[in-house]
Amino acid sequence: MTDLKFHRHRRLRQNATLRRMVRETILTADDFIYPVFAIEGENIKTEIPSMPGVYQFSLDRLVEEMAEVVDLGIPSVMIFGIPSEKDAVGTQAYHTHGIVQEATRVVKEHFPELMVIADTCLCEYTDHGHCGIVRDGDVVNDESLELLVKTAVSQVEAGADVIAPSNMMDGFVAAIRKGLDEAGYENIPIMSYAVKYASAFYGPFRDAADSTPQFGDRKTYQMDPANRLEALREAESDVEEGADFLMVKPGLSYLDVLRDLKNQFNLPLVTYNVSGEYAMVKAASQNGWIDEKAIVLELLTSMKRAGADLILTYHAKDAAKWLKEA
């Protein structure tokens, strides 16, 4: 065999210490944003059937969950709200005492160092389940922007550190940036859901947030899963309008898009490891078909390797525990 010429790549894989030394992608708890569902009421901690291990929390039970998050070293949470009342214009989204606003106050009172990101959308608050105002069966763009601005300002007034608009209306970053600046919040970052696909992977989230559309679908404002170049156009618009972070949602099936954005733009990049992705892993694990720990850490590492600086994931607490043990 001495006449063969080839590279011995296995030299760098000989033992665990060497493999760790040359590892290119390092996953840590600092990479995680943990999604939290706040619901109105008292003494509520309700598990979401399609998302084992994920719960809706009333405000009086929220502190115990946040204490665990902080103890695990997870630096940030994103708060989603489930209001007790809904109407055609999503009034509770921008009400001073809306559920996201009140949850934000609770978290910041007890854990001021925890970074609170507010989900800025209307779909959880409208009786029709769409992300904007509906006129004659159509989700209208410009009128919806006005309510999204009111929502963002209200969330920041309650103490939110970052605004994360997820509605996919045209011009939403420009409108919110202008609204925040005029309200004196020019230093509040916008984490834009710049590339959000009309994905089948969102099903369990709609159970969690009670946000299923009551008619039609969201394909007129969320992106076609078949499109890749459109993602670059969407992201470029948000960069020009003043976004501080760009997000790709979902994560697992869109790693190519994630890498495209990483190559094209220099803003911090976020991906959302969404509810359907989480539910599939949990279901397979509960059936004994996979090693949950190994699968989850590999999936999250793949997202970071593809370009994500931050990962919004329901696996955050488990992953943080496993990384501590490593």
Rank of each mutant, 00 (worst) to 15 (best):
L232V: 15
D119C: 13
I26H: 10
R259D: 14
A152V: 13
A319D: 05
A320M: 12
Y221A: 06
L147W: 09
G90E: 12
L12E: 09
S237P: 00
D256L: 04
D138W: 03
R206P: 04
N141G: 09
V70E: 14
V156F: 11
F245S: 01
L261G: 11
G132C: 12
E241N: 10
F215R: 03
M169A: 14
T96K: 15
K317Q: 12
V173A: 10
I79D: 07
Y221D: 10
L261W: 12
L252T: 13
V248I: 14
R305P: 02
A38Y: 02
A175Y: 10
Y278N: 02
L310H: 11
M280Y: 10
G203I: 04
L300M: 09
D138T: 13
G242W: 11
H97A: 14
M1E: 08
A316P: 11
A174V: 07
V22K: 07
E64N: 11
I163T: 09
V22N: 05
T28F: 00
E68T: 10
I99V: 12
K282H: 01
V153C: 07
T91D: 12
E47S: 09
G73Y: 04
Q14K: 14
E65D: 12
E85S: 14
A118Q: 04
P204Q: 08
A174G: 07
M280T: 12
A93Y: 07
L258W: 02
L312F: 08
G276I: 10
N263P: 00
E109P: 03
G129F: 03
G90I: 12
L229D: 15
D210L: 13
Q286G: 15
Y197G: 00
V257W: 08
A316S: 15
A67Q: 15
M115C: 14
E236G: 15
L27V: 00
L297Y: 10
G132P: 13
L232H: 07
F111Y: 14
G132A: 10
N187R: 10
M168S: 04
R11N: 12
E47N: 06
P35A: 04
R259Q: 13
L122W: 06
M280P: 09
R105V: 02
A316Y: 10
L4W: 12
S76D: 01
S144E: 08
